[in-house]
């Protein structure tokens, strides 16, 4: 009997995410992985600043809220003090690749034995759709009204490619949640990123290309097309490091 239903670690609580937002799918995948690995009692998550700021309301495990972008530093502290715990961060692109760039790069380079879930929707969702480091060239946001690239904004930062040059990193994969096949693949990658930590292998990061219909000003259906047609060519899916 195949049963597809909400995994116990996800609380029976409505989320505050907009209709069609990819955060909900990413939450489910992380929750299912934690339940399938049987590590719920020893898992500690970190919530970011960004749309996932209320993550602790949705997960039935310990979650600590971090200052904007500081999750990898907080996770480092938790993991070093309690190495038997499984520690994951869940971060948006503004959190991880703008204000938290230093924390991200140095935690990765130190090879901290943590799992990072990086939700890339190419925009600042929570604050109303400003340009993120991952906003694509030509993409219109409230702070790049003629499309990114015109006024000295630089090209998008590609986090997996950037981190792949760092010696401490164990595993990097870019995935998406914009088709059922991508969702299944993202789950496989997230599971591997948690398993790496259990096996003591070091820093693992899974990037998840994710829909933000509200700030892209697209319908949910148009948003999956946006990920598949616009984002995937700029942010190619695949494994960027696996050691």
């Amino acid at each position: 009997m195949a049963v597809f239903k909400r995994t116990p670690i996800l609380k029976d609580q409505l989320t505050h995410y907009c209709p069609g937002c990819g955060h909900g799918i990413a939450h489910r995948l992380v929750a299912e992985v934690i339940d399938e690995l049987g590590i719920r009692e020893r898992t500690i998550g970190t919530a970011p600043v960004g749309c996932a700021v209320l993550l602790y309301n949705y997960f039935n495990c310990d979650v600590i809220e971090c200052a904007h972008g500081r999750s990898p530093a907080v996770a480092t502290g938790i993991k070093r003090v309690q190495p038997d715990k499984i520690v994951f961060t869940y971060q948006g692109d503004g959190d991880l690749a703008a204000i938290g760039t230093a924390e991200t790069i140095h935690a990765a380079n130190r090879g901290e034995n943590i799992t990072v879930i990086f939700v890339n929707n190419a925009i600042y969702g929570m604050t109303g759709g400003q340009m993120a480091p991952t906003t694509m060239l030509g993409q219109v946001t409230t702070t790049t009204q003629h499309g990114r690239g015109g006024q000295g904004e630089g090209p998008p930062i590609k986090v997996c490619e950037l981190l792949s040059t760092l010696g401490g990193v164990c595993y990097l994969e870019r995935t998406a949640v914009s088709t059922p096949k991508d969702v299944m693949n993202a789950k496989r990658a997230i599971k591997k990123a948690f398993q790496n930590q259990i096996d003591g292998k070091g820093f693992s990061l899974v990037e998840v290309l994710s829909m933000c219909p509200t700030d892209w000003k697209l319908s949910p259906a148009q948003s999956v097309d946006f990920v598949n047609e616009k984002m995937k060519p700029v942010f190619p899916l695949g494994v960027y490091k696996d050691q």
């Binding site: 009997m1 195949a2 049963v3 239903k5 409505l14 937002c21 489910r28």
Partner: peptide, 8 residues
Amino acid sequence: PDTAIEVQ
């Protein structure tokens, strides 16, 4: 995105 569907 909202785990509103259960399939058996």
